[in-house]
Design a protein around this nucleic acid. Sequence first.
DNA 1: TATTTGTGATAGTATTGCTATCATTCAAAA
DNA 2: TTTTGAATGATAGCAATACTATCACAAATA
Lengths: 225, 225
Amino acid sequence: MDLHFSKNISKGLYIRDPENTVLGKKILKNSVELMHEIGFETFTFKKLADKINSTEAGIYRYFENKHKLLIYLTSWYFCWLKTYIKYLTNNVTSPEDKLNKIIELLASPVVDDEQTIYIDESLLHPVIVSEGSKSYLTKQVEDDNKQNFFQPYKELCTLIGNIILECNPSYKFPKSLASTIIEVAHFQNFFMHNISSLTDFSKKNAKVGLVDFLKDLTFSSIQKG
Amino acid sequence: MDLHFSKNISKGLYIRDPENTVLGKKILKNSVELMHEIGFETFTFKKLADKINSTEAGIYRYFENKHKLLIYLTSWYFCWLKTYIKYLTNNVTSPEDKLNKIIELLASPVVDDEQTIYIDESLLHPVIVSEGSKSYLTKQVEDDNKQNFFQPYKELCTLIGNIILECNPSYKFPKSLASTIIEVAHFQNFFMHNISSLTDFSKKNAKVGLVDFLKDLTFSSIQKG
DNA sequence: TATTTGTGATAGTATTGCTATCATTCAAAA
DNA sequence: TTTTGAATGATAGCAATACTATCACAAATA
């Protein structure tokens, strides 16, 4: 897969394109690291600036505020996922096998893709698990949606939804099931690591448990009847 | 159901019990209203104080910060849900019928329960849908969990998980399926109203669509095989 | 009557979130 | 070669946020 894989990230999310400059890439790389370390709530542009020996004002030249930066990172993640899924399912013909691969990818720890040198996916994944939903759980969600900020998420849902329809053309809820698979993969992962009594997985059987649950949930719904 | 239904809300969540005083109840009632109106991010104790003609310092005597207030409200909601579910399923013998009632309750707009005069459940429900997950999606989640802040959520999951086991004693993921039903009910509801292309529901078929999806998802998994 | 409890009023402080201005470097265009 | 512009750094400042502390007073309680 290419260093610059196709990204449908809305231009409204940034002031200056961070992928085009040295400081921009430093902002992306280090914001993932810092959010991973201290969480989105306590993350500030000042702290990020100190981390990269730049200034607050410098970062504001790239992103209007930390909320837009978060949506940017979430978009980046979904674009990357979509590209990665296409690559993984490239030679797979059976839609069931495609879904299995997608679930395994969504539910397992992500390994850093060394091609994208300025973002470490193995850190971005837990950041998205913990912080991703905050990008839409706001009062501005309607405005943000009108500006197509969630386009990459929608495209991923469409991709997965279409594979679901390949498995069963008469299944009634392909898009809801697609977004459910993605969200459940994220928050069951979060629960498993942080409030484990809300799940049936221990940290030992973590990976296989969650994958089994998701496959069971998905295929029972699709193949029923 | 009683005005003071049983609530397992951790004492660590408040400094002074808000249900025992006039100002406390005003804080609860108006914080729900204000969060519903402006969202959790822009909600401040200063704005709440102005709304109820009290002072910022006055509110800090009840809650250490707005995050603990949010966990308090989420706990309150889950305690109320648990009580309400027990009431609704009181005379129901079939576990399948119980699950159906639970799903209908979780996926439908909530009507204000006029017995609890200081909290309007019809406002609390959308607040929990939008803001509830922020109570655990933080870096302090492990500490918070150790202090049993999420006890009411766990109890609700146990309740639903046990009903799932009544339906099928050999089902392997009762707790994960329980938390999944709750979370999916919330975020599919949110998507439906705010980013509708992530779902298969329009605002017209809203209620029935989501209920159908959840029942299908739940019972295909449980009854499979 | 003395005392505790709940509330109000006011002040203050560190941090956050954001904007503005000026100077410098460096590479590309003229 | 000069000029221009784009990217970055340095500094200042300001309003809002997130608290903490202190004093006062009224009502309930012991």
